[in-house]
């Protein structure tokens, strides 16, 4: 249920109109850089620097061809997709299991475990990146997608765990007892009774992890320094800028390839994005 604090009265049409128009202008400026890069990806280089207009003279699809094949964005796209999907699965399963026992059971050492976890919540990525790089090297998984995927899944899990634990702790005990009566063990109760109930949390956590994995930069840029083959999209566009710095339209197309999937996902699943983000301060 939503609460609204309406200080704009319905009767006061002038005030209403002024606020709406002000927000429309503000929104246009706000979104302009994103519209600009979208339109630039369909323009010629000459046209990009020609004016502020957003409608291209004709759609130059070749920009995407150059980015996808020439600059290897096609490969980076699938790298990013694999890293994202696999890390989402890892994160949902591991934090779901963790959140389940934290939310519903008490056992010796629980408090210490939670304490250690909470203390990692504000660890900056810049602080852990060097040992992570070294660890992957020592395990011999720094040159393929396995290492990058694991490290992408292995950031601090506190918010995910709190989301799961909070949800699991509200599931009525009767459900669990009924399952036990039916002879379901610990694992079966979790998989067949509990997990299906938490679909909204699974969605929220998945979305947060997609956002993290798809948009991460520091980790992939460090891990792929000597390995262009396993670059992600963000790193790929950054390298593109260094290598073909005069191909503006190609770079715009590469940028669009990177950001469009997430924006589309966001437009369709906005509710879960919002819940995930707000979960951070509500907990």
């Amino acid at each position: 249920m939503s609460r609204y604090l309406n200080f704009i009265a319905e009767k006061n049409q002038v005030k209403y109109l002024i606020i709406t128009i002000a927000f429309i202008i503000f929104s246009f400026f706000w979104i302009y850089p994103l519209l600009w890069v979208l339109s630039a990806s369909f323009k010629t280089d000459f046209e990009i620097w020609g004016g502020l207009g957003l409608i291209p003279d004709r759609l130059v699809w070749e920009n995407f061809e150059r980015a996808w094949f020439g600059a290897n964005m096609g490969r980076y796209f699938f790298n990013t997709l694999i890293i994202t999907v696999v890390s989402v699965i890892i994160v949902v399963v591991t934090t779901g299991m963790f959140g389940y026992v934290i939310g519903r059971y008490s056992f010796p050492g629980k408090k210490i475990l939670i304490g250690i976890l909470i203390s990692t919540i504000f660890i900056p990525q810049g602080y852990t990146i060097i040992p992570v790089f070294d660890l992957l090297n020592n395990l011999n998984i720094s040159k393929n997608l396995i290492g990058l995927t694991l490290a992408t899944a292995g950031h601090t899990p506190v918010i995910y765990i709190l989301l799961f634990a909070g949800y699991f702790s509200r599931v009525p005990v009767e459900l669990e007892e009924a399952a036990k009566m039916d002879g379901a063990g610990f694992v079966r109760t979790f998989i067949s009774i509990m997990l299906p109930l938490t679909k909204p949390v699974v969605a929220t956590v998945s979305i947060l992890q997609v956002l993290h994995a798809w948009n991460d930069f520091l980790l992939p840029v460090v891990i792929t320094l000597g390995n262009p083959d396993i670059r992600t999209l963000s790193v790929g566009v950054y390298a593109f800028k260094g290598e073909y710095f005069v191909d503006w339209s190609g770079m715009a197309a590469a940028s669009v390839i990177t950001i469009l999937p997430i924006i589309v996902l966001f437009l369709f699943m906005q509710k879960y994005f919002v819940e995930g983000v707000q979960g951070a301060v509500k907990g």
């Binding site: 929104s27 706000w30 979104i31 850089p33 994103l34 956002l211 798809w214 948009n215 930069f217 999209l233 963000s234 790193v235 566009v237 950054y238 940028s255 990177t258 950001i259 997430i262 924006i263 996902l265 966001f266 994005f273 919002v274 983000v277």
Partner: peptide
């Protein structure tokens, strides 16, 4: 207003 948040920061 939320749109830039979901856009890759490096981009």
């Amino acid at each position: 207003i939320f749109m830039p948040v979901v856009t890759a920061i490096a981009i």
